[in-house]
Amino acid sequence: MSEGQHVDTIEYFLQDIEHHGRNERTAAAYRRVLSEYETFLQERFDTTPPAASYRDCMAWIHEMRSTHSESTVATYASYLNRFYSYLERVGHAEENPMTVVLEEMNETIESNPTRRDITLAEMRAFVADVRHPLHRAIIVLLLKTGLRAGELCNLDLIDCHLAHGAKDWQPRAHIAGRPDSLFISTEHTYGEESGGEQRTASNKRKRETVIPIDEEVKRALVQWLAIRPDTPSNPGGQTPEPLFVGTADNWGERLTPKIVHHVVTSYAADRGWYRTGGGAAENVTPHYFRHFFTTHLRDRTGDRGIVQYLRGDVASDVIDTYTHNWGNRVRDTYLEHIYTISG
């Protein structure tokens, strides 16, 4: 698409929102934001909006966060999401790259979105159809820990302490004395180097979190580790080995949130739980699994504080109690109340 064509694409979009009754002030806001975004893409990546990738969009969001409030960034992201939904609808883009970006953002455009109500029995039937060890490990872990997709991608082998013979690495000191647990760091940020590599996702947590895993999660991880490819880009073990790597085109490379999103939504689409262009009310995505985990575990335990701790939310000082009393307050409560999803 030529320069003139992609300028017209923005103009056509602006005409479209005007035809739908948006006032001049709103149209002007869209024009300003899209123009700034277009300039950013040209200067940073020498590309155009229709050709931009998920990573390009995420880089722009990261740039905006350095100069704007989170609420403003969320508004700008909603503008960009609507623009790409338009491009996808009229055939000027194969997909909406902002779909995954919005999954990664800490801000929610809808304050309290109504979500599809999936029962535990329905979710078990969904998981039963997932046979690929990597896909199953991803989905089971997201459903039973409340991790964000980016946090899952950022996990290294040393962040996982399994009491099982499949483990042949030393877990980091934070979990060395806590078998069957995961360590979620606060240090990883999109586009910045961490652990010797540039990260493709951010961990949104304000606190380091140790998350217990039960036998069901451990079984899924062990089955995945049995077929996990070696990492080709880590000669001599100079950087931490990622826990989850690709088994297709990106063989042996660390997973990205876009891949995780694709894995989840592909299975969800097969069950009629995901539709391109659908919103939070109908689509099942990695973020939906976080919602599912929160709702079910909170209802089972009646302990909002433990759920906040596991999610990595910023809460009151009571969270310190869970941090220092992890064994019999967090782990025991989790193991007693966490649901099974294998039938």
Rank of each mutant, 00 (worst) to 15 (best):
Q308P: 02
G272I: 04
N81V: 02
T75R: 13
T9S: 15
H62D: 14
T295V: 14
Y12H: 14
N325H: 13
P235S: 06
L335W: 04
R329G: 00
L34N: 05
R131F: 12
V100S: 03
N23Y: 09
F293I: 01
M105T: 07
P240D: 07
A93I: 06
A93M: 05
A29R: 10
Q238T: 15
D8G: 02
E187N: 11
T247I: 15
F83T: 01
R329I: 09
V284T: 05
A173T: 11
R178V: 02
H261S: 10
E63V: 11
I158D: 14
L310S: 03
R331V: 05
S185F: 07
Y86C: 08
F83C: 04
T321N: 13
P229M: 08
C160E: 06
H324G: 05
S69A: 13
D16T: 10
E122F: 06
R31H: 10
P257D: 07
I341L: 12
A51S: 11
V264T: 06
H19L: 14
A52K: 06
A74V: 10
Y86T: 00
A248I: 11
S69R: 11
P229E: 00
N328P: 08
G196C: 08
C153A: 05
R219S: 11
A125L: 12
R22A: 13
H174K: 15
D299H: 12
E336T: 13
G277C: 05
Q223N: 14
T256Y: 02
L221F: 01
E95L: 09
T209S: 08
L142Q: 02
S78L: 05
A52Q: 02
R89W: 11
W273N: 02
D313R: 02
T239Q: 12
L225V: 01
A248R: 15
G91W: 00
V127E: 04
C57L: 02
A163F: 08
T209G: 08
R298N: 13
G191R: 09
P242D: 06
A137G: 02
V307A: 10
L297I: 06
N23A: 07
P229D: 00
P97A: 08
Q198F: 14
H68V: 03
Q308F: 09
L14M: 05
N112C: 08
Q308W: 09
F289S: 10
P232Q: 09
G191W: 09
E70W: 09
H19W: 11
Y76H: 13
I338N: 01
Y267P: 04
P171W: 00
H92W: 12
T114N: 12
E208R: 15
L182W: 00
D180A: 00
D332F: 09
K204Y: 08
E24Y: 12
T47M: 03
A125Y: 07
P212I: 04
Q42E: 13
Q198R: 15
R32Q: 14
D230A: 13
G21R: 10
A128S: 14
R124W: 04
S78T: 10
A269G: 05
A280S: 14
A93G: 05
A280H: 13
Y79F: 11
D8A: 11
F83P: 06
A51T: 11
V222I: 11
P50A: 03
